[in-house]
Structures are given as C-alpha cells and as structure tokens.
C-alpha cells in the first residue's frame, strides 16, 4: 500500500499557517505518498482554497462546525480520529497547536507518535531530536502501525503554490465533547513579521535588564524588518511576553539572520536557533557559549552597539 498521508491544517480562521505548507513538504518526502489536508474550521471555504493551491496536495477535506472557531484539541482529535482509518500517516506541525493535538489523536487511534520529525528516511523511518537537540534519534515504526507525527517545521521549507487539489466535505462530522470551552486568547497582534517564519530575527536576553530596555530591540528589529525574539531568561524576568521565547520549550526557528543580543546561549536556547543560516552574537562576556555557534561575534556593551547599529543602518 502506498503511503496515504493526512495533514491536519493549522490556521487562524482566515489564513492557513505556513506550518501547514511545511508539513506538506515533509509529507512529500515520503516516497509515493498521496497527501490530503484536512481543515477543521467554523467556515472552511477560503482556507480550503488556500490549501488546494499547495503543491503536492491531492485532496482537501473540510470539516465545518461552530466548535472549530477555536482550535480545541479534544474536539479536533475526535473528528480526526473518526476520519483517519484510510490513512497510513497523520501529520501536524510541531507548533503549540500540533503539540497539543496530535498525541490526543494518536491515543484515540491507539498508535504511536513520532514527535518533531526533522527528516524522513522512509515511510516508517524518521529522524528526530532529543535532549534539547543534543542527540538525534533514528526511529523505526514497527508492525505497520499507523504513524502519527509532528513535523519540526524549522527543518522544512514550505511547498510552493500553484497546485489545484480537489476539495470535498468530510464525513462524518463528529459531535464534539462539551467538557472543554474556549474562553479567550490574548494575542499581541503586531505589524512585525511573525517570529516563526521571519527571515530576520532580533532576539534579546537577560542582559537587556528591563522591559524598557528591551524596547531598544524593537527599534532595531523595525529598521531591519525583523521579528523580535527572546531567551527564556528574558521572558521569565518579564522583559518580553511568552510568545517571543525561542528555544527547547519555546519556538524553534530557522531565519536567514539571527541576532542574539545579550543572550549567553544556554543549550536550551541554542536548540531553538541551530537551523538559522547566520547567527550574530553581541555580548559583553567574551566567554559566553553563544560565541561557539555564532558566525559573527561582537564582544561589547549592547547598550552602545545596538544604537550604533541602528544609526549605521538608518
């Protein structure tokens, strides 16, 4: 049987997340795979059109139910489990959306999950990082088990557009459980690029010293057209909101250019940036571990260097 892969789309109700195009990229590295994207939404019309253009997608399934106005894992998992029988693999992104959802799907299907797939060696063999990226495992799924996987999005480039997949409504539409209710989301909407997909990221650490000082980085980021990130230390200290955290337990990113400013470079942070094309470190401690991985290192006081950079760029 050829691989038949179902991808659970991530979206915000209007726009498909780029993570979905990266999951498709991962799925298309499985030899001879047929790829279906399923969209659970309150209104899936526009989202289905977007998914249908992703290169390599054969079919787009839509599931419309008011409960899917917000991504509740319990509701989506029940729906996906009801649709999953024909598929050999069910993939989702390794974002908080997918990390929340996919294990619930795997358990409903009584099958195994491979987390953070960074490479596909065959339909049953995958590579994934463990120990905050300090080791890479190659794992084999046994006995023809259905494979649920989360795709480490930093390891894949999104597929191109130009496709024209067939769109159909999925059946059955499952009545969701009523035990879980969405209350609110406090998303700091900004005009800046999205941290997870930005080509450039300016990131700050504990050395910024305060939330006020952290604002310095926003100025530089805007000059560069960059997203802003932060180390765990900076988020813990309250200098930056949690959604900016980069690292093992935050976001794993792969920008073209990453500027680590006042970040010492704990292993848990480095695992979040190791796929960046170019890393720049600015730190006053010449022995900071960040310099071990930086392509360009500048030892000095960030409070002098950042304004200088901005002046030279402006």
């Amino acid at each position: 049987m050829n691989p038949n892969i179902l991808i659970v789309a991530e979206h915000d109700g209007r726009t498909l997340s780029v993570a979905t195009a990266k999951c498709v990229a991962c799925a298309t590295t499985v030899t001879d795979a047929a790829v279906t994207v399923v969209i659970c939404a309150a209104d899936a019309t526009d989202l289905a059109q977007q998914a249908a253009t992703l290169a390599g997608v054969g079919t787009v399934l839509t599931v419309e139910h008011p409960v899917h106005a917000h991504p509740l894992a319990a509701a989506i998992a029940a729906q996906i489990a009801a649709l999953a029988a024909p598929y050999t693999h069910v993939f989702g992104p390794s974002s908080t959306f997918g990390k929340d959802l996919m294990p619930r799907i795997a358990a409903l299907l009584k099958t195994v999950q491979v987390s953070d797939i960074m490479a596909v060696e065959s339909a049953t063999r995958f590579r994934r990082p463990i120990y905050a990226g300090n080791a890479v495992l190659t794992v084999e799924v046994l006995d023809g088990a259905q494979v649920v996987g989360t795709v480490r999005t930093a390891s894949f480039q999104p597929v191109a557009g130009g496709g024209s997949a067939h769109i159909e409504a999925a059946a059955p539409v499952v009545e969701p459980p009523h035990h879980t209710r969405f209350v609110s989301v406090s998303a700091a909407r900004s005009d800046r690029p999205d941290l997870q997909s930005a080509a450039r990221v300016v990131s700050g650490g504990r050395a910024l010293g305060s939330a006020e000082n952290f604002q310095l980085l926003y100025g530089l980021a805007d000059t560069l057209g960059a997203a802003v990130g932060a180390s765990r230390a900076a988020v813990d200290a309250g200098y930056a909101p949690n959604e900016l955290q980069v690292g093992q337990t935050g976001k794993i990113i792969a920008p073209e250019l990453y500027l680590a400013i006042g970040i010492s470079g704990a292993i848990q942070h480095l695992t979040g940036i190791k796929d960046a094309r170019t890393i720049v470190a600015i730190n006053k401690d010449p022995d900071a571990p960040i310099f071990e991985v930086a392509d360009f290192g500048l030892v000095g006081d960030l409070f002098e260097i950042v304004p200088q950079l901005q002046k030279l760029l402006g």
């Binding site: 195994v112 190659t138 084999e140 799924v141 071990e292 392509d295 360009f296």
Partner: peptide, 21 residues
C-alpha cells in the same frame, strides 16, 4: 511500536569569526 535504530550527535555549527565593532 517504535524501535530506536541509532543515536547520533547533532550536526555542529562551525565557529565563526569575531568582528571588532
């Protein structure tokens, strides 16, 4: 349901250069 075939160290980034200002 899963067998680990091997462990490998991650790909290392090569150390870069220092700039002065």
């Amino acid at each position: 349901q899963l067998k680990t075939l091997r462990y490998e160290p991650p790909a290392q980034r090569s150390k870069g250069v220092r700039v002065n200002d």
